[in-house]
């Protein structure tokens, strides 16, 4: 679907998903500026809500990587916020979720893939991090490599498949049954959007945590590397 919509600038074709993402980014930036002003006020409900939401996300990250949560939290929190909003965007008539585009979810999965190695190498060092692929036995190296590829693919396809299928189902039901009939499916979309965003972020967090597991026994070293 999304492939058919977009913007062509010269020889470049900007997909609708990218345009939607940019609009979403602008909205998030504006909302950040709004929240930033509210944060300067005492006992403001927006401030309180923002603090609560951030604290919840930070605590969730802290439970998995207690020594590196200050490094990892911005990445995971951005993932959760972006995915929740991107997934819910499909509920607005006339718009499509960017995450219903496999290219977008693939890009996100590649970012997660890269971030796992980035955090691992940054905190463990290249040599020690690469030794992780040879543990417990060098024979495990192919399996580790297959695991890296498969879980990245799974991340991309799981999110894409869920969001795309829900949008497709809502569209089909709307075409077949008419107005208001897809409302239950839209409710399901609402729940599914939250769940898929949570799953994507938690899996990314777990992958990062797995890459840092050799270091988690030394909590004082990584906590200062913000």
């Amino acid at each position: 679907m999304n492939e058919t919509q977009g913007l062509t600038i010269g020889s470049l074709f900007i997909s609708g998903s990218l345009l939607t993402t940019w609009v979403l980014m602008l909205g998030m930036l504006a909302f950040s500026a709004f929240i930033r002003r509210k944060l300067l006020q005492e006992d403001n409900p927006w401030r309180t809500s923002a603090e609560i939401l951030f604290t919840i996300m930070e605590n969730a990250v802290k439970e998995v990587v207690p020594s590196y949560y200050q490094q990892v939290t911005p990445f995971i929190a951005t993932l959760w916020i972006y995915l929740v909003l991107a997934n819910l965007l499909g509920l607005i008539p006339g718009l499509h979720s960017p995450t219903a585009d496999l290219s977008v979810t693939a890009g996100l999965a590649l970012i997660v893939f890269a971030s796992v190695h980035w955090f691992g190498i940054r905190n463990l060092g290249l040599k020690r991090y690469l030794q992780h692929y040879l543990s417990p036995n060098p024979i495990m190296l192919p399996f580790h490599l297959m695991s890296e590829i498969s879980r990245t693919l799974a991340l991309a396809i799981r999110l894409f498949g869920n969001i795309m299928s829900l949008e497709m189902a809502i569209l089909l039901v709307l075409l077949v049954a008419g107005f208001l009939v897809p409302v239950p499916l839209m409710m399901l979309h609402l729940v599914e959007a939250l769940i898929q965003a949570y799953i994507f972020g938690v899996l990314a967090l777990l992958y990062i945590g797995t890459s840092l597991e050799n270091k988690t026994t030394q909590p004082d070293q990584g906590s200062n590397n913000t």
């Binding site: 900007i14 993402t21 940019w22 951005t78 290219s103 977008v104 693939a106 890009g107 996100l108 590649l110």
Partner: peptide, 10 residues
């Protein structure tokens, strides 16, 4: 292109 730009966007 979308993948690359999505990565950059993110």
């Amino acid at each position: 292109l979308t993948i690359v730009l999505e990565i950059v966007n993110f």
